[in-house]
Structure formats: C-alpha cells, structure tokens
C-alpha cells in the first residue's frame, strides 16, 4: 500500500513538473522565435544597425530600392516616403527620408516598424540610422522629415535586384499613457 502510494507520488511529481516546464516552454517560444528569425534572417527583420564599416562600392550593379509607408489601423498621421523608388549601387551609403504630419489637435507618439521583402535580402541591408530606432513624437499639426541612412552590402546575392523596404506606423500614445485607463472606442474595452 505505502509502496504503491510512493509510486503514485513519483508519477504525479514528474508529470506536474513536466506541465510546469511546458508552460514555461510556451513562454520560451517567444524569445526562441526571435532568436530563430535572427539566425536565419527569416521574417524580413533587419538586424544590422549602427555605423557601417567602409565597403567596396560595386558600381557594376544597381539595386532598386522601393520604399513604402503604411498606417496601422486608425493611425491618423500623414506618412509617406520622400521618394518611392531609388536606384543605388551596393556598398554606397544611401540617404532618404519619410515625411510625417500629425493632423490631429493633440500631441501623439508613433513607432515605425520596418520590414524587408524579399526576406532573404534582410541580412544584407544595414541601417546606419533610422527613424524607426526611436519613437517619434509630433505636436498638433506638426510636420517632420524623418531621415533614413542605409547601405546595401555588396555581398547581396546576384538574383536580387529589387528590395522593398516597408514601414508600418503605429500609434502608441495610449500605451504610453500608462498612468490612467484609456478607453478604446472600437471595442469598449479598458486598457492599461
């Protein structure tokens, strides 16, 4: 009897422990997923940021870089690239900007989230400076030019001749006003 009880206790202990571990594993999937995307360069995320080492400019090749700007859901800002498409030699530092204007009557804070297509090219785009590194705050009616400084690695595989760099602009004003509850009009739900 007591021996059987010990066997039961052992099974229950091990299985409960496994459940707790699997609960943790569910959360561990969040960083694992990011690590996996970082290593493989999937998901179109640019991981090379900061000052670039001098590269050999490959004048024999021209890559066309398309720039697109998207507003997330109810984001009311005017948001567009200064040039929709630019041609650039790999290794050469490119410079452009996006224009944003806050047409509302109050100060708002935004965050731009970038994405590169094809995802394979993401590993070869280096952003020296980008407005997406920081939150952007605009006062009522204010307009601003937001700079982007980048370089495309000459190691870019030959079959890629066109890269799309897309930015989605999110309104993060409500999340930052954490001191009080802000009601979301569409859902009627209260958010912190």
């Amino acid at each position: 009897m007591a021996q059987l009880q010990r066997k039961h206790t052992k099974v229950v202990r091990n299985l409960l422990l496994s459940s707790v571990l699997m609960f943790g594993f569910g959360f561990a999937l969040v960083p694992l997923y990011d690590v996996f995307c970082d290593i493989t360069g999937l998901n179109g995320k640019v991981t090379r940021t900061g000052p670039a080492e001098p590269m050999l400019v490959d004048r024999s090749r021209t890559v066309s870089l398309q720039l697109t700007a998207v507003n997330n859901e109810a984001m009311p800002w005017l948001f567009e690239p200064m040039t929709a498409e630019m041609n650039i030699h790999p290794g050469m530092t490119g410079q452009t900007a996006f224009i944003a204007r806050n047409p509302t009557g109050k100060t708002m804070i935004a965050q731009a989230v970038p994405s590169v297509a094809p995802a394979e090219a993401a590993a070869y785009v280096q952003k020296i400076n980008c407005f997406c590194f920081e939150r952007q705050s605009l006062e009522a009616g204010q307009q601003q030019e937001m700079p982007l400084l980048f370089v495309i690695d000459p190691d870019l595989p030959d079959h890629i001749s066109k890269i799309t760099l897309s930015y989605t602009l999110f309104d993060i004003t409500p999340q930052l006003q954490a001191s009080h509850y802000a009601e979301q009009p569409q859902t009627g739900r209260f958010m912190l």
Binding site: S19, V20, L21, M22, F23, G26, V30
Partner: peptide, 14 residues
Amino acid sequence: LIAVMPVLAGVVTM
C-alpha cells in the same frame, strides 16, 4: 495532453 495543454494555457495567458 501533458505536453501541450500547458502551452495552450501559456498562449491564453499571453
């Protein structure tokens, strides 16, 4: 069940 129900609990917790 032991392996995946906790993951479901995790995702709804997120």
